[in-house]
Design a protein around this nucleic acid. Structure first.
Length: 554
RNA sequence: GCGCAAUUGGCUCAGCUGGAUAGAGCGUCGGCCUCCGGAGCCGAAGGUCGCAGGUUCGAAUCCUGCAUUGCGCGCCA
């Protein structure tokens, strides 16, 4: 609707120049917005104010000129007026609004999809937790956010891949192997003190027990190093599979799992280092190889190869991101925990050094979640094995509530997740409010079917049958949806969809309490059913994007 | 010390990339079903948008400085 209006206004503006009613010839990038108050019309345009300087005329005067030309288009509006400092307010005709309902019903699940993404290839990499333990609640927020960002981009016409980067190289895997190995020996009756730098969680003991069941004492007698290597590889894969299962239970499915180790095996880590060397951005100092990231705005240079010859994690990240673009992605999005924000500058530096626009890498920082239980902070530490897993939380408060809750805040705000509260308040959790609206429409439809009432086709509705203020407000809210999706996608802000849903549900509930849908007048009933089912469709579409179910009954 | 981010009613948060009188939820107070699901609705009270400057027709939004809070500043991953 907005885009249509923009075209009409631009056309009228050009017409003004053709007829020499205005002289500057400028077509500024003006704003079209939905005013906060309905007296200000359905849409307001600020173009006259933007032209004031170039035209050397008062904004209101310019607006009057433009309006005179716009009014030549019959049927589109009830009226157009100049207001305030020079806004042009548009009051659209009722017929035009009914087109929105028609659009929703013909497009169904596709309503809200657009092609602004133009099929550009985008990769969203998220979660990417080390396979050394189960996912905890903080990862859940990253999962919900990353998945919703990907979904919203898909909706907006981007070609999206969801990827999980598996940090299966480096000494953490060795630590994992050692941890399982020591527990394994303990289970065979050996009295060993369990080192502090090993993973303390109970899941390590469970893995060891599984090995005892499957392999007996086979690893007690062989070479310890080989045993550790086995436990590292086997344990890592086993944990990875567990992570995958937990994510699927949370409704998140990855298109690809990418192994860090594979970058070493294929020689790409070395190639990445070579590329930087050849570009002239490296130097040696104290026996280590450095990357001059300060050249690109980082606050200090970073080591790629340590003086002992071992590459850093950063070196594999260079290779990893090179590899992503080699796969043909136009834009790469990394979803990180906010505690990694210090890493952003050096990653952008990698792009710049490789001759790529740093904007092609978008980093979404998701603040960590502090978990509370009854107002008390729950201490979490992966290493100490003290944490509440994502699975536990999902089992406790439910997948829908959990996902929706994570998306009721912008990613960069900190979030307290109180388990007691989440459970206790589950009834007035906003997710139920939205789902309830959906279920209500379903219930109305069931009643209508029983009464033999049928929804009208939008094209068959007389405007006066959907002319109440609440009805127009509802339709306008529905009309906004495609734009909400588009903005959520372009800004990587899925929480906008969540807030939109709450707004739509609120308007629907309010309408429901004021007006009955099924009334004696058949034509009015049919028109209202058409409206209400459109609401249901949009709620279902938006919930689907967020990965939340839209139940017919609750 | 340096860097990144945040600061909006009692609490938790939105605010559509600079627009008209700053919005929700929770909490508080007062109302609403003989009627399509009360997991709902209606109303009221409550905010100098951290502080001070600046940019312009116009600032919660952009710039600078300050304050407070959180996070980060390894040849760890």
């Amino acid at each position: 609707m907005k885009n249509r209006l923009r075209e009409v206004v631009c056309q009228a503006l050009r017409q003004c120049y053709d007829e020499q009613l205005l002289s500057s010839g400028e077509v500024p990038d003006f704003a079209i917005e939905v005013p906060g108050r309905s007296e200000h019309g359905d849409f307001a345009v600020n173009v006259a104010m933007m032209l004031a300087r170039a035209e050397k005329q008062a904004p209101r005067q310019i607006a009057e000129t433009l309006v005179a030309v716009l009014e030549r288009q019959p049927g589109m509006w009830q009226r157009i007026e100049v207001a305030g400092p020079g806004f042009i307010n548009f009051f659209l005709s009722g017929k035009l609004w009914l087109g929105v309902l028609e659009d929703i019903h013909t497009r169904g699940r596709d309503y809200g999809k657009s092609s602004v993404g133009a099929g550009r290839k985008v990769q969203v990499e998220f979660v990417s937790a080390n396979p050394t333990g189960p996912l905890h609640i903080g990862h859940g927020r990253g999962a919900a956010t990353g998945d919703a960002v990907a979904a919203v981009l898909q909706e907006a016409g981007f070609s999206v891949q969801r990827e999980y980067y598996l940090n299966d190289a480096g000494n953490q895997m060795n630590t994992l192997g050692r941890s399982i190995y020591l527990r394994y020996r303990q289970l065979h009756g050996e009295k060993i003190e369990f080192p502090e730098d090993c993973y303390q969680g109970d899941y390590i003991r469970d893995l060891a027990q599984q090995c005892v069941d499957e392999h007996g004492d086979k690893f007690l007698h062989g070479d310890a190093e080989q045993a550790v290597a086995f436990f590292a590889a086997w344990g890592g894969e086993s944990i990875r599979a567990g992570i995958d299962a937990d994510l699927q239970a949370f409704g998140v499915r990855f298109d690809n799992w990418f192994s860090e180790q594979s970058l070493y095996d294929s020689g790409q880590v070395q190639q990445g280092i070579e590329a930087l060397k050849q570009a002239g951005y490296t130097y040696e100092e104290d026996g280590a190889l450095w990357f001059r990231t300060t050249e690109f705005g980082d606050d200090k240079d970073r080591v790629l190869v340590r003086s002992n010859g071992v590459t850093t994690y950063f070196a594999s990240d260079v290779a990893y991101h090179r590899e992503k673009y080699a796969r043909g992605f136009d834009t790469v999005i990394d979803v990180w925990g906010a505690d990694h924000h210090g890493y952003v500058a050096r990653m952008k530096a990698v792009l710049a050094a490789l001759g790529r626009n740093p904007e092609d890498l978008q980093i979404i920082l998701v603040q960590l979640v502090s978990l509370l239980r009854g107002g008390e902070q729950v201490a979490m530490s992966t290493r100490a094995g003290k944490f509440v897993t994502l699975k536990e939380v999902v089992d406790e408060v439910g997948r829908d509530a959990c996902r929706f809750f994570f998306l009721t805040r912008r990613g960069d705000s900190q979030l307290d997740f109180d388990l007691e509260l989440a459970k206790k308040q589950s009834n007035d959790n906003p997710v139920y409010y939205v789902q309830y609206a959906h279920a209500r429409v379903c219930s109305i439809c069931a009643n209508a079917a029983q009464a033999g009432a049928v929804a009208a086709a939008a094209t068959a509705i007389e405007p006066e049958h959907l002319a109440l203020a609440e009805e127009l407000e509802l339709i306008k809210t529905l009309a906004r949806y495609p734009e909400v999706i588009e903005n959520a996608a372009l800004n990587y802000e899925p929480h906008r969809v969540t807030f939109y849903l709450q707004d739509l549900a609120a308007r629907f509930h309010s309408y429901y309490n004021q007006q009955r849908v099924i009334v004696d007048d058949e034509a009015v009933t049919a028109a209202r059913l058409c409206l209400v089912t459109a609401v249901r469709q949009v709620i279902a579409n938006a919930l689907a994007v967020l990965g939340v179910s839209a139940p017919e009954k609750m």
